[in-house]
């Protein structure tokens, strides 16, 4: 017994080191799965408030450019609205509008990383503003990521610039879809893999979200094809996609909530269990 106690006393530094190192590695591995109970995230009281304070100061830089972007978006939306109005006039004013099933919220980014292999953003909206895990995040120009942790006032977003991210996307011209991944090399280029060989792939073609998941509606812009080649087995294309978004310069985003997601997921679960 005494020997054991002596052993502990003699090696107390090593044991302390081993325990703490093990804890850290455990926390690291935790983050490698997608949102299976994340304990550590920047969506907490302390870091959220520090980032908010910083964002309150730095938020004034680049306001011109942000305004310009909002103007552009307004212009685009107005044009769409006019087009819709003129095509809709024949229906008369009492036409029923069918709810689309997607709700939008705006939020401000208070922290953004893009230089690591697993990047996250922190938003200044949380549970209080009914932000939930698995909501999609886009900017006026295109896709950004998926909410993966929420606290009372803040939330973190797993960026598309994250080696764990896998988002369903397709070619705008045809319906061939694949998976959007990132190889960590360039924050403005992502990879679209598993596009079947039959698909008509051309330089400069637009890539949009596929709408095959409950997170993003179909048709959110992603980017354009910059380079493509067949994979080793020659059955699928690997595309290099240049993002419309400048992921290094973001301030305001929209959160998308799918009001039907619960129903869809429940149904899918039922089917899985029935098999």
């Amino acid at each position: 017994m005494q020997q054991i106690i002596f052993f502990f006393i003699r090696n107390k530094n090593f044991l302390l080191f081993a325990v703490l190192f093990f804890v850290s590695v455990y926390l690291t591995i935790q983050t490698h799965g997608y949102h299976n109970g994340k304990y550590v995230s920047s969506a907490n009281f302390i870091s959220g408030n520090v980032f908010s304070a910083k964002s309150n100061v730095t938020g004034y830089f680049g306001l011109d450019e942000q305004n310009q972007r909002l103007l552009e978006e307004n212009k685009r939306l107005r044009t769409q609205l006019e087009a819709l109005k003129s095509s809709d006039e024949s229906h008369g004013a009492d036409s029923i509008t069918i709810p689309s099933g997607f709700k939008y919220k705006s939020a401000r980014i208070i922290n953004n990383t893009y230089s690591k292999s697993k990047n996250y953003l922190t938003l200044q909206k949380g549970k209080k503003d009914s932000v939930k895990i698995d909501m999609g995040v886009i900017s006026s120009k295109g896709i950004i990521g998926i909410v993966n942790a929420v606290s009372e006032n803040f939330s973190t977003v797993q960026s598309i610039l994250n080696t764990e991210s896998q988002i369903n996307a397709r070619l705008k011209k045809s319906n061939h879809f694949g998976t959007l991944t990132w190889d960590t090399k360039d924050p403005n280029i992502v990879q679209l893999i598993d596009i079947p060989r039959l698909a008509p792939v051309k330089f400069g073609d637009t890539i949009i979200t596929g709408g095959k998941s409950t997170i993003f509606p179909e048709g959110i812009l992603i980017g354009t094809i910059q380079e493509y080649n067949l994979d080793e087995a020659d059955n699928y294309y690997d595309l290099q996609v240049k993002l419309f978004n400048d992921m290094t310069n973001l301030k305001h985003v929209y959160l998308i909530e799918n009001t039907n997601s619960e129903e869809i997921l429940q149904l899918e679960n039922q089917v899985e269990h029935a098999e």
Partner: peptide, 11 residues
């Protein structure tokens, strides 16, 4: 915590 990096810096 601030960087959302799990425990890499701690390790």
């Amino acid at each position: 915590i601030f960087g959302d990096s799990g425990g890499v810096h701690a390790a």
